[in-house]
Computed example of a mutant assay.
Amino acid sequence: MLIQLKRVSLVVAAAAIVAGCQTTNPYTGEQEVNKTSTYGGIGALTGAVIGGLVDGGEGALKGAAIGGAAGAGYGYYTDQQEAALRQELQGTGVQLQREGDNLKLIMPSNITFDSNKSDIKSSFYPVLGSVAKVFKEYDKNLIEVVGYTDSTGGDKINLPLSEDRARSVASYLMNQGISGSRITSFGAGASNPIGDNKTKEGRAMNRRVEINLRPAPQK
């Protein structure tokens, strides 16, 4: 019994160490937790606990191995997709953020649309085409396109404009071969500002289109 407890403790400790691994982001130079290691560590920990309850120490070791591989699966997938997007988006002005399993692309209006227009700038087509290429290669996401404006003009102007801009981006992605079943789009007007609408710089930040990538429901 004592030997089994020691083996379980070693597995749990190893999983915790793996989950805490950090790497340096090659694009920002910042230290960040490696997502694949985190998912794998959590999976290993869960597998160890379940396996240990079912089959003692041997079950814990087997459960850790199986759980770690399964847990790292989507995390590894998202790591690869994130890296591919960052490579395509370097120097374009498009921001990429990640929260857990979700990725967000923030596209400021100064590079995507002319003032008060919803037609995509011709100069932005290559960038959006590169994004579409990654979306086709990594097709396990749902794609949500959201248009935003600053607070000037009122909802009667802002909501239709934000909807039209989101629709333009969604239509372009579909024309590039992305399945329409993966894509939703809507306009949010001046809601969810990311800058101060009292300043010119803040209003420019708020005029944007965001693309949210979320895991597709498992069938």
Rank of each mutant, 00 (worst) to 15 (best):
Q176C: 14
A84P: 15
K62T: 04
S181W: 07
L61E: 11
E88A: 10
I143Y: 02
I3W: 06
T78M: 07
G59A: 13
K104P: 01
S109V: 00
L53K: 14
A15V: 05
S122C: 01
I178G: 08
G67M: 03
A14V: 05
A16S: 11
A166S: 12
N25M: 04
K121R: 13
S151A: 15
L2A: 14
E201D: 13
A166M: 08
R98Y: 07
G147C: 12
T152D: 12
Q87Y: 05
M205V: 02
N116I: 02
A72S: 15
V146P: 02
S168A: 15
A166I: 04
I183T: 05
G154C: 06
S37G: 13
R208H: 08
A48T: 04
K62L: 09
L10K: 04
I42C: 10
C21K: 08
E144V: 07
S115Q: 10
G91C: 01
I194N: 07
L173P: 13
K219E: 09
I106C: 01
S171Q: 12
A188D: 12
Q80L: 05
N141G: 01
N206V: 02
G71F: 05
T92I: 00
A216Y: 09
L159H: 04
T184I: 06
D155S: 12
Q4H: 11
I143N: 02
R182N: 06
G154S: 10
D119M: 00
M107C: 03
D101K: 09
G73Y: 05
N25D: 15
A16D: 02
Q81T: 13
M205C: 00
R86H: 00
Q80H: 05
R98C: 06
T28Y: 06
K104E: 12
R167W: 03
Q90F: 00
G73V: 04
Q218G: 10
R98D: 07
G91I: 03
L5A: 15
R98M: 09
S115D: 12
A166R: 07
V209W: 04
D79V: 06
L89P: 13
Y138L: 05
V18I: 15
S109C: 05
G147T: 10
Q90E: 14
K140W: 08
K198P: 03
R214N: 06
G41I: 07
L103Y: 06
A188V: 00
L142S: 13
G91H: 02
I211G: 07
Y138M: 05
